[in-house]
Design a protein around this nucleic acid. Sequence first.
DNA 1: CGCCCTATCGCGAGCTGGTCGCAGACACGG
DNA 2: CCGTGTCTGCGACCAGCTCGCGATAGGGCG
Lengths: 156, 156
Amino acid sequence: MTLAPPTPSVVAADVEAAVELLRSRGLRVSAARRLVLETLFAGDTPLSAEQIAAGVAGRVPRSDLASVYRNLETLEEVGLVRHVHLGHGPGLYALAGPAREYLVCESCDAVRAVEASELDGVRQEIRDSFGWEARFSHFPIVGLCPACLAESQDHL
Amino acid sequence: MTLAPPTPSVVAADVEAAVELLRSRGLRVSAARRLVLETLFAGDTPLSAEQIAAGVAGRVPRSDLASVYRNLETLEEVGLVRHVHLGHGPGLYALAGPAREYLVCESCDAVRAVEASELDGVRQEIRDSFGWEARFSHFPIVGLCPACLAESQDHL
DNA sequence: CGCCCTATCGCGAGCTGGTCGCAGACACGG
DNA sequence: CCGTGTCTGCGACCAGCTCGCGATAGGGCG
């Protein structure tokens, strides 16, 4: 069993589809809103609000940071967007898609994204042991990646 | 196998033992430093830097926040103290002790602290699946506690 | 097509959590 | 009891994020 996120995810094929969805929910499609969507569709990795405000590749009509946060919040309520906290540093936002969960390395900051189903075994183990249902999509699993693990063992 | 923290933990029986340890490492035992230790020994749950600065129960000779952070950092380097990030909000500091790891509930903020060994099965599963060595002492497992899980299933 | 209502924007101020630089205080070895 | 250099307390500062507010502009409706 995979735990459902707070709001159901909605997957849009492209910016136009996303825009249509917004309209169908009675939300306006402002330039700033569209820009956030375009930037997210253009980027293939999760982006910080700052990066989105700057526009991918410093695209000219940049947008106000506060508005970006408000739009990301709105898009997240709609279910088009999800965000994740990879350790310290700013939260990162991405389009909703095939459920992603994360492992991040405390030592080198490497990030491994995996399909939620790949962590079902782990989730099961946690459920069996504690009765808790773990979600690693919003806060990841933190530890050592194989490389840093090997290195730390060399030093012993 | 339990992964060793960055600096080995040191367990002191009381403030005086901790103070002796500091001296033996060539560190000075200032009033502010002693206050941090006393506050940590007095509290039985992890405390924020702010709480420590205020002194447990608003104890009078409060201390400067920047100094508290510096002292916590020093004590952590020595191995007497560890800190954990339970979701959003400030980091929480506690005396090093029997290795603790954490599960926190996204919905009601409940925290469950467990012995590191209780999570060895989970760690093993992660190691087998991905080759990563997970640590839940600095960043916890986030998900739903049994109560919130049950509730969320009622609502379906 | 143009009006009007109001959702949304952009800006500035503000908040929390945490760090830094610096002058002065004080721990502690001699 | 003195010198040295660690630590302190203060203020400024930074990152990440949120809020309040007057101005702008989506878009339903006539």
